[in-house]
Design a binder for these strands. Sequence first.
DNA 1: GTGGTCTAGACCACC
DNA 2: GTGGTCTAGACCACG
Lengths: 124, 124, 124, 124
Amino acid sequence: MIIIDYKDRRPIYEQVVERIEDLIVKGVLKEDTQLPSVRQLAMEISINPNTIQRAYSEMERSGSIYSVKGKGSFIAHTNKLMQSKKDQIFVTLKGLVKDATLVNIGVNEFIDVSKQYFLEMGGN
Amino acid sequence: MIIIDYKDRRPIYEQVVERIEDLIVKGVLKEDTQLPSVRQLAMEISINPNTIQRAYSEMERSGSIYSVKGKGSFIAHTNKLMQSKKDQIFVTLKGLVKDATLVNIGVNEFIDVSKQYFLEMGGN
Amino acid sequence: MIIIDYKDRRPIYEQVVERIEDLIVKGVLKEDTQLPSVRQLAMEISINPNTIQRAYSEMERSGSIYSVKGKGSFIAHTNKLMQSKKDQIFVTLKGLVKDATLVNIGVNEFIDVSKQYFLEMGGN
Amino acid sequence: MIIIDYKDRRPIYEQVVERIEDLIVKGVLKEDTQLPSVRQLAMEISINPNTIQRAYSEMERSGSIYSVKGKGSFIAHTNKLMQSKKDQIFVTLKGLVKDATLVNIGVNEFIDVSKQYFLEMGGN
DNA sequence: GTGGTCTAGACCACC
DNA sequence: GTGGTCTAGACCACG
């Protein structure tokens, strides 16, 4: 379910967070679903439980999941996550537009390519 | 000319590269212009010369500048840099569109916001 | 009657204690009233009996309730509980005032806000 | 400088955060002051470097300090910290007032005691 | 069994 | 030298 790319320069715990949050926004993991336990997921993908623990901690801090000692970890309300993901996308987009203007990419080219990419995505 | 943000989480040498390449794409630094020497730039912005050296090495490797032994470092042909910056932007855009579709941001919203951002940039 | 918030980070037995003591200070549960048995309450709120047992033990230790072998658990004299709750509040208040002085919150601001909060509570 | 209370139930890293943030709000540590390195502080108070690392990470996340790889950790702008501490105090106060009304502590008693505590603090 | 904290020791990127 | 990540193994509180 969760694949780690060891060539990726980002830390493992960050990749784990990304993979799980992806599953949430995709709707695969729904609210109050129980996540695999720290130890179990650690064994599954053959990494140290502490690393998973850290990933889970990050997600709890950011409000994506909630953990109960002795019970397990569960998916939280997804609204907040969706919104923060959207916000993040628009922030990135703003920076990208800024860079685009610097290298003389015009509005038209930018949105044409965007449309094209949307088409490709829809095709999947 | 070059400002380092120590609170920025990226390594300093990367920031130096970015600042210089920015000056190149903006046309401030033109082809075959000589860059300040490693030591000189290091002193100017109060940074370890090793860090500047690494920044210059990275840029030479990527083809943004070229070095002549005993003479110094110079701006290379800017076409290649411009093109790679453009490529990079479109790669990022592709990823962004992919993420956008996941959180149900439609084509229309996406390009409307893009246009808006372009307007804001033009206004500066 | 008793609601557990699994997203609350405090242990469940502590929440149970708080809820019951709340009912006591509010006057809902009066002196010598019998509490539901451990098993019964556990079933009611779908919780492990061990957890309820621990909550009851804590309250007996602190003197909020008393148990009679073979009969059950009962609300103790409420005076002591009321007094210890009051004491606790003033201890917290003292710490809070100390912190307030550190960040330059003056007496006036502090009591103005307090009055405001009392008004809001009264309005409920 | 920093004292750990092993009888305290809170985790060590949390105590470290509290102690340092206290020094910041008290004005002992000023903006851009360099903190002791992770390893050095760990040796000083005889705890594992990882624990200090975690404390520093928490503070960087919350914006109290900023860290630069290869250089060290530094005190950030203190405004944000002061504000969040103030906010925290008023949140606690609100909860305290709510509890006070439950046990029949009136506005007058509450603010009288508060004033008294402020006097005591001022006397230190 | 669960999550959370801590230690010990290692490696990396950066300066 | 610095901060940051990871592993291995231990212990605790909770259910």
